[in-house]
Amino acid sequence: MNWIFDILYYAGLFLILLGSVFLFLGALGIYRMPDLYNRLQAGTKASTLGAMSTILGVGLVHPQWFVKLFIIVLFIAFSNPLSSHALARASHRSGVKPFLKEGGEDAYAEEVAAEKARETEKSTL
């Protein structure tokens, strides 16, 4: 039976290494990308998988902690996209324009403008 734990152990080490590389790539994306939304893209995806993989790897290397580490992984998988969505929405509404190349479209700007128009209409009535 011991060989199963050996395989899990080495799989855990591999996951730790992979996760830390992705965490680094996420931070590099945060540093290099030209505007806030692209930074969120790179940061959220890479840091979510990086953190999940690192934490699961520790869970495989040290199986006594697996349950709690698994709960942390689940929490990160749910909370990280939510917080990035909240940040993207808030910064778009506060007026941070997305970086667009020629002919790029920003469909959300129309929605925000329409909502503002509805609100002013309501307040003038």
Partner: peptide
């Protein structure tokens, strides 16, 4: 797949992106 995509975009020197907001 998303993570390898991010890695490719971040590590290539000229940042191959063409962003926009769609619905």
């Amino acid at each position: 797949k998303a993570n390898f995509d991010v890695a490719r975009r971040v590590l290539s020197p000229q940042l191959p992106i063409n962003p926009g907001v769609v619905k």
